[in-house]
Design a protein around this nucleic acid. Sequence first.
RNA 1: GGAGAGGUGGCUGAGUGGUCGAAAGCGGCGGUCUUGAAAACCGUUGAAGGGAAACCUUCCGGGGGUUCGAAUCCCUCCCUCUCCGCCA
Length: 428
Amino acid sequence: MLEIRLIRDDIDAVAARLQKRGFTLDIDRIRSLEEERKQVQVETQDLQAERNQRSKAIGRAKAAGEDIQPLKDEIAGLGDKLKAVSGRLDTLQAELDTLLLSVPNLLHDSVPEGLDENDNVEIRRIGVPQAFSFSPRDHVELGEALGQLDFERAALIAGSRFATLNGGLARLQRALIQYMLDTHIEQHGYTEVYVPYLVNSESLKGTGQLPKFEQDLFKIDGESDYYLIPTAEVPVTNLVRDQILDAVSLPQRMVTHTPCFRSEAGSYGKDTRGLIRQHQFEKVELVQIVKPEHSYEALEQLTGHAEVLLKSLELPYRVMLLCSGDTGFSAAKTYDLEVWLPAQNAYREISSCSNFESFQARRLKARWRNPETGKPELVHTVNGSGLAVGRTLLAIMENHQNEDGSINIPAVLQPYMRGQQRLEKASS
RNA sequence: GGAGAGGUGGCUGAGUGGUCGAAAGCGGCGGUCUUGAAAACCGUUGAAGGGAAACCUUCCGGGGGUUCGAAUCCCUCCCUCUCCGCCA
């Protein structure tokens, strides 16, 4: 959410910056709503002040033993008038809030202009794709040949866009999770957290998934206001909702592993094969709560933390700076890490690292007390995948495959696999 | 699931219809004293919105209601605690 003051002060400049990402701000509607809001608010507050004054006078008169009936008569009608005006104020405020909640974040100046992913800018490219002496198979073929990846069983149990793993592959996924968590905890200074996988709508509103992106979520049917988390960003960032944090507690660096659930509505026919786009997948998520002046530094640092994993897993990747049209709703600036997939002969997203500046913090009312001003001020939030585990698993399968269909386990994962060096058909 | 007790400022905790945004204590900040610190004493100390400011409004778990007036009464939801039952 943007600061209403910013919009009030210079709505044209804000609208111009939003246009950069293809969002058209309804200037006239906001102007007229704001104008009426201001007038109705003053009116409401005047009436409230009058009511308070007169009620206190009645209190005094009563204490003095005077007849209060005449005073009560004088006030007749004020209540109804107040109710009408404040009702109107509530309506106006609600309309403005709804409008503001669906306005995306302003982009950082360093974000290149562009329409879609084709305009994203490659920042750096690390690692060289392996030259195979045979035609590399994709992870579906490899996994099914190993007998350790099964989409048919999953379709039977749940439906499309689910997978079952068994034996070595299931263990390798678990090894990846442990390795990623341990690396961030031990080398990058993150604190591990464990959080709910079901969250309420307030939390989703706080991080920006609601109200605009309800169709991407799985909602739990019933009385309770629960959604399955689409990313751990939601519960973890909400740890600081409605808080005024101590300056010395910043930055907060948190890491967690959770499953993530996405409806993938609107992605019919896209990535239908394999593990790339599933309704359920595992992800290790990095979240930082920082002072505003450090958030861009934190974004670079956090992106680097995710990159460490790709390097150590010997996976070639590139870092993309998303252009204005491709940057997500809540983000001010985003780097995507894209891993090389030999079977697709392409780089595919495996991590997305964003600085949200105060956009989420404003919705979350997540603040810190600035010692310089003594006042509560909004924090900045930064997060990124470190990494998407399912996609990492398939990247390992495809990049580290052998001609016989076995898969080399990267050295850093072997300690988590009792020293096992390869996944083979016999292994389990 | 059944029965009961609660949710008040950074914390503890008073307040059951009227100058209550809220006593008191702790903590924080500033000062006096001191070579310095501690102690003691004095002062100060919540958040949000509107306004250039004076100042005004709102907030005592959330929402709704009664009343001239609600932290206080009523309804409803959420959460915490105790006991019983059930359970990974």
